[in-house]
Design a protein around this nucleic acid. Structure first.
Length: 510
RNA sequence: GGCCCCGUCGUCUAGAGGCCUAGGACACGGCCCUUUCAAGGCCGCGACACGGGUUCGAAUCCCGUCGGGGUCACCA
């Protein structure tokens, strides 16, 4: 039997990082067993603009390299893969459940049902519907309808016995049927609810392994009841823990960004990304651009493999010490047995560390390829050759592609260089006497290369009885306006004599 | 509140009775290097929730307590 797994996002307009982690486990499991990974869309018919809301999700998966074998846009033999296109099929399943006596027409009004639930809560009883407005015969239905009531369809759950199932992460599970509510499977408007659609889709798409987040654990018994009532084969289950908030065990939520921003680590990464987004001219708000959403990482210029590798280790480990896995290695080593049971908090600082490692591992051409679009989008024109030199010298100072903006002084016109007041005070004002000598050095050093510049500065330093570092800092400020950056001599050499002198003369009034 | 799940350093985790004086990684602190910013090297800080058992021996098994979380929709 071929392994088939699925991920079923709802078109919400963004790709949640916790969802990606669950999807990744599904993807890995399918790949490992030579099976298929299906991307099915849980859209409801009342949603508008499904296409627009789906686009960021599909783009995110493609960007991360988590390709699906069947589903949205790619199609496949078990479609449709959009829930909104399957209403007749679902209603057929509802009819089957009704006919089998496993579901019933219910005529309770929402208020009546709610009153029962509130009473149960008050009396500290399990919230189980009394079936007071249940109708199983045409006569009963007619009677309720004469009162002007409209029916929904509820599952007629067993009231005794135990539901047992095996969970590949949690082991043997057992739940009393008597604690299971008669949930609505078909609304009074004829549309169908999640649990029913889910069961039918998994059957239609021949899903063999249901790997989903822990919050679905409580849906499992009622889904098993439907599966059995409909005569479907039962899939294997694995409930993986959800991804928790930074520094807490609450489920990560896109709505609580304001709260996460109070976490210093989270804030730091967010602000880093924000600065890059501003240079790109993106209009951003924390609601749509933040480290909970995959889009954030794409915009800022992360390496997709870094995110995937980090997510892999969030709730799974191989031997406790191996940190880095290629795609092939993760496919080879992944197993549900080694998935942890407890929720794991999102730690963007650690994700950042993975990014550092992955970006550093890119070869020079690859780094340049990733950095060029950022420069262009920010309106900075630069030859590939210049970019290559800067990227090479910047080395590990580039962690995400957007960090190239830290070295924008190489790509700005010479008259656009701004002198930072603090740097001026510290390195120019305090060194007025040596400025003419430094200018002369720039004008005369031949060839104009880093090693030569270095030895010339060192010679001058000896002559003046100062440290070479002091002179090189002064040169750096005089030419770039800033007192931070990579090796000053390399920077001068990259700019070339002409540009250095032009800048020097603009910045320094002798 | 009912039902269910979970509980090792701040965080992610290793650990399936003796290899544990509890290992690795991120973060953090210090030192070295460097008159920039980093990176790198070295050192350090730091956890088995608690209480009972079982056992020669428990982070590992059992019971209880406490703590945290999920879920109880005509959302998905």
């Amino acid at each position: 039997m071929t392994v088939r797994t699925r991920f079923a996002p709802s078109p919400t307009g963004y790709l949640h990082i916790g969802g990606v982690r669950t999807a990744l486990f599904n993807w890995l499991f399918a790949r490992k067993h030579g099976g298929q990974f299906i991307l099915r869309i849980d859209d409801t018919d009342q949603q508008r603009n499904v296409e627009a809301a789906l686009e960021p999700i599909l783009r995110g998966f493609r960007w991360l390299g988590l390709h699906w074998d069947e589903g949205a846009e790619v199609g496949g033999p078990h479609g449709p893969y959009y829930q909104s296109a399957k209403l007749p099929r679902y209603q057929e399943a509802v009819a089957q459940l009704l006919a089998a006596g496993c579901a019933y027409w219910d005529y309770a009004t929402p208020e009546e049902f709610k009153a029962e639930m509130e009473a149960a809560e008050r009396e500290k009883r399990p919230k189980i519907y009394s079936r007071r407005w249940m109708a199983e015969s045409p006569a009963e239905r007619a009677r309720f309808e004469a009162e002007g009531r409209v029916a929904s369809v509820r599952l007629k759950m067993p009231r005794e016995g135990v539901c047992r199932f095996f969970d590949q992460v949690r082991g043997e599970m057992a739940v009393e049927w008597a604690n299971e509510q008669d949930i609505v499977i078909q609304r009074s408007d004829g549309s169908v609810t999640y649990n029913l659609a889910n069961v039918v889709d998994d059957f239609d798409m021949k899903i063999t392994h249901v790997i989903r987040a822990e919050e679905h654990l409580s849906n499992t018994p009622r889904q098993i009841f439907m599966i059995e009532s409909l005569g479907y084969p039962r899939p294997h289950y694995a409930h993986v823990p959800f991804v928790a908030e930074p520094g807490s065990k609450n489920k990560l939520s896109k709505r609580k960004i304001g709260q996460y921003l109070k976490n210093p680590d989270f804030k730091k990464v967010y602000e880093h990304g924000q600065a890059i987004a501003e240079r790109l001219g993106l209009t951003i708000s924390p609601e749509t651009f933040n480290p909970v959403l995959v889009e954030f990482y794409e915009q800022v210029g992360f390496v997709p493999d870094a995110i995937v590798n980090y997510l892999l280790l969030l709730g799974w480990s191989w031997d406790g010490s191996t940190e880095f896995f290629t795609r092939e290695e993760m496919i080879d080593k992944f197993s549900l047995e080694r998935v942890n049971k407890a929720a794991a908090s999102l730690d963007v600082k650690k994700l950042w560390a993975f990014e550092e490692h992955y970006f550093a591992g890119l070869d020079l051409n690859e780094k340049v390829r990733r950095v060029m679009p950022f420069l262009h989008r920010a309106g900075l024109s630069a030859s590939e050759d210049l970019v290559r030199q800067v990227v090479a010298e910047a080395a590990h100072r580039l962690i995400v592609a957007g960090d190239i903006f830290n070295f924008d002084d190489f790509f700005l016109p010479d008259d656009a260089i701004r002198l930072e007041p603090k740097a001026k005070q510290k390195h120019l004002d305090a060194a007025r006497d040596v400025l003419p000598r430094l200018r002369q050095l720039l004008a005369s050093t031949e060839p104009f290369e880093a090693v030569r510049l270095k030895s010339q500065v060192e010679a001058l330093a000896r002559e003046l009885g100062v440290k070479p570092g002091a002179l090189s800092q002064t040169l750096r400020v005089a030419v770039t306006g800033k007192d931070v950056g990579f090796d000053a001599y390399a920077g001068l050499a990259i700019l070339g004599r002409e540009r250095c002198l032009r800048r020097f003369d603009r910045v320094v009034v002798l």
